[in-house]
Write a protein that binds this DNA or RNA. Structure first.
Length: 876
RNA sequence: GGGCGAAUAGCUCAGUGGUAGAGCUUCGGCUUUACACGCCGCGGGUCGCAGGUUCGAUCCCUGCUUCGCCCA
């Protein structure tokens, strides 16, 4: 490229985004304009703005325009802040840890716990991770995200592992983590424990209600219960009714015989196992028979009753999700072991039904449709197991976590309710143990003799007990000769991702020398607490909640000051996008076809927190805006020619100049206020309105004449138009820059910068925002809105519109010259009209405005809602 | 069953306690030497339903209906 200062300022006729966008992606990287510089003046002044955006899972194949939407929305605000003079810390992370990655690898390579070693599996995960990260980075770069790619983190890299392990040790030390053998949510397919947040409602399926008779053990009589899970009958540990139920004695004497519990595998019969009747508010007296079977464990409600009433434990389902009972007896004289160890649950359910029926316990089966909780990742119905696991205690600090939620500034504000309700409804401590291959290892060994856990010190981290020998700090805690056994579980993925603000701040190295010189491993306390978290609403209960909890427990602080919650990008019918449904739109294709700026323009159309449908027409609208921006700036630059903003030439602004200057100032204020409130869409809307309607359709049309026929104008008026165009363009390019980074950079560099002083900003993206945050002043047009210009401008626009209307009605081209415009009406407006006449005539291409109308050209056409009428006479 | 959100023009969506808005679409014009990916103009809505507060409600309150999401 030739030197833009000496090359002619004229822009090419067409904007070639396919060439321009990749060029700027590379150039920005070379210039390092998005680099975080902790030694900058802004950082020193405490004006650092740090951003915590979701580290995406690495299976990049599922990326759709909805993802591009939410990252773009965050980025609009980030670019605004950068221009406002903040030192921006904007890293990208990759969540290559945990179940999603494992599941992805399992599907892709058909490898699982049964046919792969841990190392094989982990290597595959790591390889997928690297490939996925590269795809993401490529896409995010082409979308124009102003990420500092040197700051990228990965949740499975040693740095993040160390943070997760340090978090574990810190919480153990603070008494927030403990190991307990509790009932836990279990995914039989993935063979792992889950947290409450890892479950979701499953699909509606047929789950017939089996009505069973339980005979009384203490006296004559019986009770009826309805259950969808007859196979669990022998796991029954109580029957429950509502406290007000009058059918049974309330003195605790009531006991029932458990059906089938008297049968033995050899065909003999023994005593029935009996269970008590408990009274519990949670039983709905109106549902079914009003009597409920409590098993260990059919569902999560069972656990609550089991815990509240201190019931027995009769586990009959194994970790593989199959029956794990003593053999039950034969049916019809045949030895069938359908309820025995190893049966799948659907078979066991049928067998249980037959067995119950054969022994007369089954009275009725009614159709029923309901949904069960399933694992969010494997879609398998959740079962419950009792296994020792590590728990982060959260239930006892609900109040503190609620208080933290209220300290946060939520955008939009109503999103706070989702957090409140989740925390309010929290029933379980956070189980962080996962019986999986791929994840952060617990830094834990167990004494062979006592089973007690032995922990290393923070200085030993990171480590992997399954690979590394116990460090001296661990060995020192046990007597010689006592074997140490490595913990085989790994941590829940949220254990790491809940630390993203702390990982970014390199919290693990705050009080420990990492031994490394790289900035990657140096403490970055300046960025913590972070400025803003950006995410979608569906992970408020997970990522957001866990992050708040972690920062609260570790640093007694909020992780960020603001939270920005985005909606989803939906398909054109309003459905969630997915590969499976075939309604998937690949952002890469959109960028190639319409440009990244256009895709971003679409993303800017959503109100924060609201979903946005992907309509190709909206992206086309973005493309149209780019074309208009390009053409109008090209025209503007041709008009102002060799204008030199530092020349100091005399200006005599007309009403049109004064009006558009006021509009620019007004819009700068409006857009700034909107961005401050994270309302990027309002900012864009205001800017678009200014640009398209006021600037292009009116102002440029009005001033054209000054450049076409300069001899008919005072040179100071021409100079005023040149200045207005130059500074108006400068302001508008900056207002558009956060949303349209590519075209604004191209126009700034090619059109404006060559006319500016040598110390002009290198890039529009590091140029100052037109409204200075500290002085409150706008840096163009003197910064003060000309009130009078607003009213006169309104009159001028009405007059121009009236002429256009007349010309259109006369099927006349708008460029058609007029010999005269005749005016009649309120004489009080005469003075004002005189002030705008010159601009009016220019816009209308009229030679004369007169109040003396000939009889054959009566002014009859209205002017807005003013008491004025006009008529026109064509030039020929 | 609980919570949150939404309901405004044919479509996608803004918006405000005081005469209802944009873009797209429809229709009619315009070769206007920046742009036909443009410009000018016209058309089009009982602001989901029913109450209430108010001088006045699309907006605030209550209830209802429908849709979406989150959670039981």
């Amino acid at each position: 490229m030739t030197d833009p200062r000496t090359s002619d300022a004229e822009l090419p006729k067409n904007y070639d985004f396919r060439a321009v966008e990749p060029r700027w992606t590379t150039q920005w990287d070379e210039d390092g304009i998005y680099r975080y510089d902790p030694s900058s003046d802004a950082a020193a002044a405490g004006r650092t703005f740090s951003i915590d955006t979701p580290p995406p899972y690495v299976s990049a194949a599922h990326l759709h325009v909805g993802h591009a939407m939410s990252y773009s929305q965050a980025e609009f605000v980030i670019r605004f802040k950068r221009m406002r003079g903040y030192e921006v810390f904007y890293p990208m992370g990759f969540d290559d840890n945990g179940l999603p990655t494992e599941r992805y690898v399992e599907k892709k390579y058909k490898k699982h716990k049964g046919n792969a070693t841990r190392k094989e599996f982990v290597d595959l995960c790591l390889a997928e991770t690297r490939g996925g990260a590269a795809v993401y980075e490529q896409l995010w770069r082409s979308l124009g995200l102003s990420v500092d790619w040197r700051m990228t983190y990965s949740t499975i890299a040693p740095r993040a592992v160390e943070h997760a392990q340090k978090s574990f040790l810190d919480l153990v030390a603070k008494g927030r983590i403990e190991r307990r053998a509790d009932p836990i949510l279990w995914d039989p397919r993935m063979q792992t424990a889950l947290a409450q947040a890892d479950t979701e409602p499953g699909p509606e399926i047929d789950r017939p209600l089996h009505q069973l008779r339980f005979d009384r053990a203490d006296t004559e009589g019986s009770g009826l219960i309805d259950t969808t899970r007859p196979e669990l009958v022998t796991a029954c540990v109580a029957l429950a009714c509502h406290p007000d139920d009058t059918r049974f004695a309330a003195d605790g004497s009531v006991r029932f015989k458990v059906p089938l519990s008297n049968l033995r595998a050899d065909g003999s019969e023994a005593e029935f196992r009996t269970v008590p009747l408990i009274r519990d508010d949670a039983v709905d007296p109106e549902f079914g028979t009003g009597l409920m079977m409590v098993c260990t464990f059919g569902d999560q409600e069972d656990i609550i009753k089991w815990r509240t009433h201190k019931l027995d434990t009769q586990l009959i389902i194994g970790p593989d999700g199959r029956m794990d009972t003593p053999e039950l007896p034969s049916l019809h004289g045949q030895r069938v072991h359908v309820l025995a160890k190893g049966s799948k649950l659907p078979e066991a359910r049928l067998a249980a039904k037959e067995l119950l029926e054969a022994h007369g316990y089954l009275l009725d089966v009614t159709e029923n449709v309901s949904r069960a909780s399933v694992s969010e990742r494997s879609s398998t119905p959740i079962e419950i197991q009792v296994v020792p696991q590590w728990f982060v205690k959260l239930v006892d600090i609900k109040d503190e976590l609620l208080a933290r939620g209220r300290e946060l500034r939520w955008h939009p504000p109503y999103m706070k309710d989702r957090y409140e309700h989740w925390v309010d409804g929290l029933k379980w401590d956070w189980n962080i143990s996962r019986q999986r291959f791929y994840g952060v290892p617990f830094p834990v060994w167990y004494r062979q003799d006592t089973g007690a856990a032995v922990l290393p010190t923070a200085a030993d981290l990171p480590l992997d007990p399954m690979v590394d020998a116990p460090p001296p700090s661990v060995k020192a805690q046990v007597p010689d000769g006592v074997e140490l056994v490595a913990e085989e579980d790994v941590m829940d993925t949220w254990m790491t991702s809940s630390l993203t603000p702390l990982i970014n701040a390199n919290w693990a190295f705050w009080d420990k020398d990492s031994g490394a010189e790289t900035p990657d491993l140096q403490p970055r306390p300046g960025i913590y607490p972070m400025g803003v978290r950006v995410q979608a609403f569906e992970i408020i209960r997970t990522w957001l909640f866990y992050t708040v909890a972690k920062s609260h427990m570790h640093t007694d602080a909020l992780p960020w000051r603001d939270v920005m919650i985005s909606g989803w990008g939906l398909d054109k019918k309003g459905k969630k996008m997915s590969k499976r449904l075939g309604n998937f739109v690949d952002p890469k294709g959109v960028i190639e076809k319409y440009s990244a700026d256009s895709l971003r323009y679409w993303a800017a159309g959503a109100t924060l927190g609201h979903d946005l449908r992907y309509l190709e027409n909206d992206v086309k609208g973005g493309k149209r805006l780019l074309t208009k921006l390009w053409n109008s700036t090209r025209f503007a630059m041709m008009s102002i020619g060799d204008y030199d903003p530092s020349s100091g030439a005399t200006e005599a602004p007309t009403v049109a100049d004064r009006w558009i200057r006021a509009r620019v100032l007004e819009t700068v204020h409006k857009a700034t206020e909107a961005y401050e409130g994270y309302e990027y869409n309002k900012a864009l809307r205001a800017t678009e309105q200014l640009f398209w309607r006021d600037w292009c359709d009116n102002y440029l049309e009005i001033v054209k004449d000054r450049f076409r026929n300069p001899e008919q104008w005072d040179p100071a008026q021409v100079e005023a138009a040149r200045a207005t165009i130059f500074y108006g363009t400068w302001a508008m390019l900056r207002l558009f820059a956060p949303v349209l980074p590519f075209i604004t950079e191209e126009l700034y560099t090619r059109a404006l910068k060559p006319r500016m002083a040598d110390d002009a900003p290198l890039s529009v993206h590091v140029a100052p925002w037109p409204l200075d945050e500290r002085t409150g002043e706008v840096d163009v047009f003197g910064g003060v809105v000309d009130e009078q210009a607003g009213a006169l401008g309104g009159l001028l626009l009405d007059l121009v519109a009236a002429v256009r209307q007349l010309k259109t009605e006369a099927r006349m081209g708008l460029g058609k010259p007029l010999a005269a415009i005749y005016v009649a009406g309120d004489a009080a407006l005469r003075e004002d009209i005189a002030l705008v006449e010159r601009d009016w005539r220019a816009a209308a291409r009229a030679d004369l405005v007169t109040w003396e109308a000939p009889a054959d050209a009566a002014p009859t056409h209205g002017v807005g809602d003013r008491d004025l009428r006009i008529g026109i006479a064509p030039a020929d």
